[in-house]
Design a protein around this nucleic acid. Structure first.
Lengths: 246, 246
DNA sequence: CGGAGCATGTGGTCGGACCACAGAGCCGGC
DNA sequence: GCCGGCTCTGTGGTCCGACCACATGCTCCG
C-alpha cells in the first residue's frame, strides 16, 4: 500500500544548513550553552555562503534556541540557549491576529491549560511563588490602578501560577496563549462600564484562587479559574488586535 | 511605582523590519492571502538592505505566516499564509531535544490537550473525520505492520481527532506535542518485548476510543485516552531524540 | 603600576552581481 | 487560425566582498 505522495522538498540552502544544525541538536552533540563556530568559519565548512548560514541562524534565533552577540570574549558569538517563551508568544500572537485561531478556540485552550496549571500549583507550588503571587494580587488591588497596569499584573499572575505548577511546557503554552489575547483583554477592560467595580470583582476571584491554591484545593481552584476566564472572555470581541489602534 | 528595569532592546535592522511588518498584521492591513511587494522594491522603501529585509522575511516564514515562491505569475512572490503547525512542531521538537521540557511535562501536556480533544470530538466531530479515523485504526490493525508505519498512523489518528474537535488551536498544540515525542515513541515501540501483542492492545484502545467518540461519550473517551497516553509514556525513557541513532 | 590607546575578532549591514525558475508574450511552422 | 517552441522578464535564492559597531584583550607609555 503506497502512502500518499509527499511534496518533494526543494532544498533551499539555508534549509539544508538548518537541517544540519538541527540534527546536531537531536543527536545531543549541541547542548544548551554550547557555542557555534564564528560565521566566517562555519560557512565555508558547511560549503555555503555566509548569507545562507546567517538565514539559518536567524531561524534558530526566532525559535529561541540560539542567541548571537557581537564583540569578543566568552559571551560573544552564537550560543545555544533555551528560550521558547518569546518565540511561542510571537507565533501565537501573529496567528491569532491573522485569524488562524478564533477567540473561542483561544478561550477553550486557556481554560484547559489554566485548569491544569492551577491543579498543578495547588499540589506543588513553592511558597516563594505564592508569596510573589500575593504581591501581584495586592498590586492589582491598589485603588485607582490603571487598566493597562492591571492587565500587566493579571498576565503576570496567571503566568506565575503556570510556572509554579512545575510544568515548563504548559507554563510556556499558558503564557503564550495569555499573551495572544492581551490586546483584546486590554480593550475589553477599557470598555468596562464600571471599571473600579470590575477590578474589585476580578480581585476577589484572584484572592480566592490564591487561597484555594495555598490550601491545596486543586479541583476547586480549577473550577474557579475556568469560571474566571469564561467570565472575562464573555466580554471580549474579535477585531484588529493592534497595539496602536487610533 | 516604577516597574522593574527592562533590558533596552538594541534594534537590529531586521528586527525593525519585522516589527514594521508585524504591526501591519496586527492592524489588519495585512491579511492571509495578501502579497508583499518584491524584495527589491520593499527594501529601499523600508530603507534597509535586501539582506536585512530577507532575514525578517525568513523569520516570518519560520513562524508560518509567510511563504515565498520564485517565478512569475499570481502565485509568485511573498504571500501571507496561516500555517502554524510546522512552525510549532519544529519549535517544540527542538526545545524538547534541548531539554527545555522534561518527558513528564510533555506527558502531562498531552494528557490535558488530548482529553480536551476527545471531549470536543465526542460533541461535534463530523462523520467524515470519524470515517477517516476508522480507516487509520484499520490500518494500524493490519497484521505484520511495522513499528514505523504504526507510529505514523497513530500520530495521524490522534492529530485527526484533535482537528475534528473543532478547535484549531488545541489541534495545533496537540499535533506539535505529539510530534515532539515521536522519536521517543518510535524507540519505545521498537523496544517492546512482544510487538504484535502491544499493537493489538493499542488497537483495542483505539477502537474503543473511536466508539466512545461516535456515541458522544466525551468524559469516558477522555478518561480512556488519558489511560492510553499514560500507559504508553510509561515505557518511554529520555535520551537523544535523533532520528539517526547509530 | 595603571590607564589610555590600539589591535583583534565577533556579529550586523550593505551593495552588487549572478543563478534558477516559472509565467507571459512573441513568432514561426503547420 | 492554431499550436508549439522560443525568448523575455520578473521573482526569490545565492554568493561575494567590503565596511561598520562594538567589546575584549593587549601593548605601550607615563
Amino acid at each position: 500500500m503506497p502512502v500518499e505522495w509527499q511534496p518533494v522538498q526543494q532544498s533551499r540552502t539555508h534549509e539544508l544548513v538548518l537541517r544540519s544544525i538541527e540534527e546536531r541538536v537531536f543527536a545531543g552533540e549541541l547542548r544548551a550553552g554550547d557555542r557555534l563556530p564564528p560565521e566566517r568559519e562555519l560557512a565555508p565548512v558547511l560549503g555555503v555562503s555566509r548569507s545562507a548560514l546567517r538565514e539559518a541562524l536567524r531561524v534558530l534565533e526566532t525559535i529561541g534556541v540560539l542567541v548571537a552577540q557581537p564583540g569578543r570574549g566568552p559571551d560573544a558569538g552564537a550560543r545555544i540557549v533555551r528560550n521558547p517563551d518569546d518565540a511561542l508568544g510571537r507565533l501565537l500572537r501573529l496567528h491569532f491576529a491573522l485569524g488562524s485561531y478564533s477567540l473561542h478556540d483561544v478561550l477553550e485552550a486557556r481554560v484547559v491549560l489554566e485548569r491544569s496549571s492551577f491543579e498543578g500549583a495547588a499540589c506543588h507550588a513553592p511558597d516563594e511563588d505564592l508569596d510573589e503571587a500575593e504581591e501581584l494580587v495586592a498590586g492589582m488591588a491598589e485603588p485607582g490602578i490603571g487598566v493597562s497596569a492591571f492587565n500587566d499584573l493579571d498576565t503576570r499572575f496567571h503566568v506565575l501560577i503556570a510556572r509554579s505548577s512545575g510544568n515548563a511546557l504548559t507554563s510556556t503554552l499558558t503564557s503564550a496563549v495569555r499573551e495572544s489575547v492581551r490586546p483584546l483583554v486590554l480593550r475589553a477592560l477599557e470598555a468596562a462600564d464600571d471599571w473600579p467595580a470590575t477590578a474589585r470583582a476580578l480581585n476577589a476571584e484572584h484572592r480566592t484562587l490564591l487561597t484555594l491554591v495555598r490550601e491545596g484545593s486543586g479541583p476547586e481552584a480549577a473550577d474557579l479559574v475556568e469560571w474566571h476566564i469564561r467570565g472575562l472572555h464573555g466580554t471580549l470581541v474579535e477585531g484588529p488586535t493592534g497595539p496602536a489602534a487610533p
